[in-house]
Design a protein around this nucleic acid. Structure first.
Lengths: 180, 180
DNA sequence: ACCTGAACACCGTTCAAGT
DNA sequence: ACCTGAACACCGTTCAAGT
C-alpha cells in the first residue's frame, strides 16, 4: 500500500533470480548460465528477465557478490592472529573451489562488490589488531588474497598451500616491532 | 613427393590456425575467438576448421601451450638462485597479463601441456641445483606458480607481488641445510 | 586431402504489444 | 508494473556433397 514497500518487493524478485542463477552456475559452470534456461527454471521468458536485471553480466556481478557475502568471517580476537589469517585464507580458497565459475568470471571482468570489500576489510582489521602497521596490514591483504586465489585456480594440493601461506605470514610477522 | 613430407605439411596448416586464434584471443579475450571469425580471417569456412582441429576447446588447448612455450627460461646458474626464481615468477606473471584469456581458459579446464611442464621442470631444476631437497623444490614450484597465477588474476600491484614472492623464497631458504 | 553449403539446436538482447 | 512473442544477429558442430 505505502510507496516505501515497493523497492523491497522488487529486490525480492531479484533475489530469487540471483538464487536460481547461482544454482545454474554451481551445477554447470559459467556457460550453464543462460538467460533462456534461467527463465525456464523461473517459469518466465528469457526476455522477461531484463525487467529485473540489466544483462547477463549484471547477473554475474550480483551472483559473485552474493557468494563473497556467504564466506564466514572468524572473530577478530578469538585465536592467535596467525591462525585467524590462515582460517580466512582457507575459507576463501574453499569458497572458490565450491564455486569455480567465480574464478572464470573474475578473469573476464573485475568483480569488487561490497561483500568482497567487507572480507578484505576484515582481514586487514585482524592484521592491524595484531600489531601490524597499516602499511603491512595492506601488504597482508594483498598477499593472502593473491595466494588463496592462485591456489584455487591452480588446484594447488593442500600441503603446498599451507607452506606458502605460512611463509607469507612469517614474512609479515618478521616486520612487527615485537618480532614474532 | 615423399610420404614423410605429409605430416609436417598438415601441422603447418595447424600452426597458422593457432597463430590466427592467438591473435583473436589477444585482441578481444576468449569470447572473441569464434570459429566463424577465425575462418573469415583465414579465408575459409568455419566448418573447414574442423578438418584441422577437433573443436574450439582443442584450439584453446593448443593456443595455451603455445603461449607457455614462449615464456623465457633464464639460465640455471647465471644468477643467485633467489634472483632466478624471482625472474621466472615475473616472467610467468607478465605472460599471463599479456594473455588474460589464458587465465579464463585455465578456470574452465585444466591446461597442462608439454610447454607448461617444461617451465615447471626448469623451475624445479633451478631450486634443486641451489641445494634444496627434491621435496622442497617441489614445494617451491607449487608455491611460486600459485602466487604468480594469483597475482595475475587478482591484478595485484607490483610491490605487493614482490613481498609475497620474497616471503615464499625466504621460507624455502630457511629449509636449506646451509640456511640462507 | 581439403573445403563448401546447408542445416540443427542453440545464444544475448531489443521492442512492440499485451494485461 | 510486469510479462510475452517475434525478431535480429549471432554461436559450435555435423554432414552430405563437391573438387
Amino acid at each position: 500500500m505505502s510507496t516505501t514497500a515497493e523497492t523491497p518487493r522488487r529486490s525480492l524478485h531479484q533475489e530469487q533470480i540471483v538464487d536460481a542463477a547461482l544454482a545454474l552456475l554451481d551445477e554447470g559452470g559459467i556457460e550453464n548460465l543462460t538467460m533462456r534456461r534461467l527463465g525456464d527454471r523461473l517459469g518466465i521468458t528469457a526476455a522477461a528477465l531484463y525487467w529485473h536485471v540489466s544483462s547477463r553480466q549484471d547477473l554475474l556481478v550480483l551472483a559473485a557478490d552474493t557468494v563473497w557475502g556467504r564466506t564466514a568471517l572468524p572473530g577478530i580476537q578469538d585465536l592467535p592472529w596467525r591462525r585467524t589469517v590462515l582460517e580466512m585464507a582457507e575459507n576463501l580458497r574453499s569458497m572458490l573451489l565450491r564455486h569455480p565459475w567465480l574464478l572464470t568470471a573474475m578473469t573476464i571482468q573485475a568483480l569488487d562488490g561490497p561483500a568482497r570489500d567487507r572480507y578484505e576489510e576484515h582481514l586487514r582489521a585482524v592484521c592491524e589488531t595484531s600489531g601490524l602497521t597499516p602499511r603491512d596490514a595492506e601488504q597482508a591483504v594483498h598477499s593472502i588474497v593473491t595466494f588463496a586465489i592462485g591456489a584455487a585456480l591452480a588446484a594447488t594440493p593442500r600441503p603446498y598451500v599451507s607452506f606458502g601461506l605460512e611463509s607469507i605470514i612469517d614474512g609479515l610477522a618478521a616486520r612487527r616491532p615485537t618480532g614474532c
